[in-house]
Write a protein that binds this DNA or RNA. Structure first.
Lengths: 108, 108
DNA sequence: ACCTTTAATCGTAATATTACGATAATGTGA
DNA sequence: TCACATTATCGTAATATTACGATTAAAGGT
């Protein structure tokens, strides 16, 4: 059906999944890496860095924004995107918690 | 198009994205948490724990397996699933690297 | 006011995902 | 060998995602 039964899972599970989902595309990884690398929050040069059209990049940016990983400030005619510091560390925390909750005793 | 231009991105970016993609569904988060909690690698009781049909759970399991996060050993008529220890820590590492590469100086 | 630049949105097409029931495959025990 | 239990796979339908070009919207400069 393509329709996730989100209501059947906990809020924490849905939050974790939506963070991971936002990271689940190479273009969005590339965007994040570029935003991190160029410390100044560059705007639409992201488009120049990626092998994708302007509209596609804009869609990816809005998904990252929806997940809270980045934020965008209007700066004159262009928009300045950067990592959302607070949510970034929260995302890092919940992901790390999942990975660290496994203490390593697989039986197979 | 629904077709990701994977070849346009680096191997590392694609790997990171595919790990994140596998984590990008609440049912798969729930499965992993259940596998971690019940230290013995339970098999098909996963189906009983989730509000999804057997075939749907099987599909989620095979996606987690495809991403390398879990592995399954045939044990009699049933299959024993558990965290793939080696890949789990690798996944943890690459994700952590991404998050830690941001040192925190957002300008907006 | 007009044009240019920048970025979001709309319309669209192709493909992927999610989900289910039904069916097939595999292994155990009678 | 024959039923039974367990799990994977097939067929399917509905919805989501990815991507592009074209259009719109917003801000600045002339």
């Amino acid at each position: 059906m393509g329709l996730t039964k989100a209501e059947e899972f906990t809020k924490a599970q849905n939050e974790l999944a939506s963070i991971a989902k936002a990271l689940g595309h190479p273009a969005r990884i590339a965007i994040l890496q570029f935003l991190i690398k160029t410390k100044a929050c560059v705007c639409g040069d992201i488009v120049d860095q990626l092998p994708l059209s302007q509209s596609t990049v804009s869609q990816h940016l809005s998904e990252l924004k929806k997940a809270g990983l980045i934020k965008g400030d209007i700066e004159g005619p262009s928009v300045c995107y950067c990592i959302d510091e607070k949510n970034w560390s929260k995302a890092s925390k919940v992901l790390l918690e999942l990975f660290q909750s496994y203490k390593g005793n697989s039986c197979c």
